[in-house]
Amino acid sequence: MATPLEIEHFLAEVERRAYKHALYAIHEHHSALDVVQNAMMKLVERYADKPAGELPMLFQRILQNCIHDHFRRARVRDFWVRLVSPLRDKDEGSPETLESLAASAEGYVSPSPEQTVAENQHLGMIEKALSELPARQRQAFLLRYWEGMDVAESAEIMGCSQGSVKTHSFRAVNALARKLKEMGLTP
């Protein structure tokens, strides 16, 4: 059983990468933070009595489920918004919808004044390329190469076969290489 200190160290170590995982998938800062919070709470509430060695895989699985839940809820919300929006448009228009459309058109990478150094430009390009990958490819790439999971663990987290994980990660690497080359970023 993991001690509270081990859990704290684990969460401190994984929280930033978890945030980025969620951000690449969701493309929205606050929602990504909410997803990370949900994942942390679920890990502690349900799996605090598991050995420390099992926490990384459990957390990744919870995180991916939380991301799926986010999209599921968003789909339901969008359905109702679409249903009601014609009425609202007739009445008063919908500035929120216009704002959100503008924001989504911009994409989540909005270079701030500080992001003028070369490193930040590289980071911006790489994150953009990553976020443009299909969800399963991005998931496989991040799990295998960033989180250091093996094929079997990644397959369990993603809920697919090991062969699928290999295919997704292979395609992700090729797609990344192509996109970064187009952006003028070569290793």
Partner: peptide
């Protein structure tokens, strides 16, 4: 915010 998230989770624990 990440720190606050972590503290909230640990306080449950």
């Amino acid at each position: 915010r990440l720190y606050a998230n972590r503290r909230a989770a640990l306080s449950t624990l």
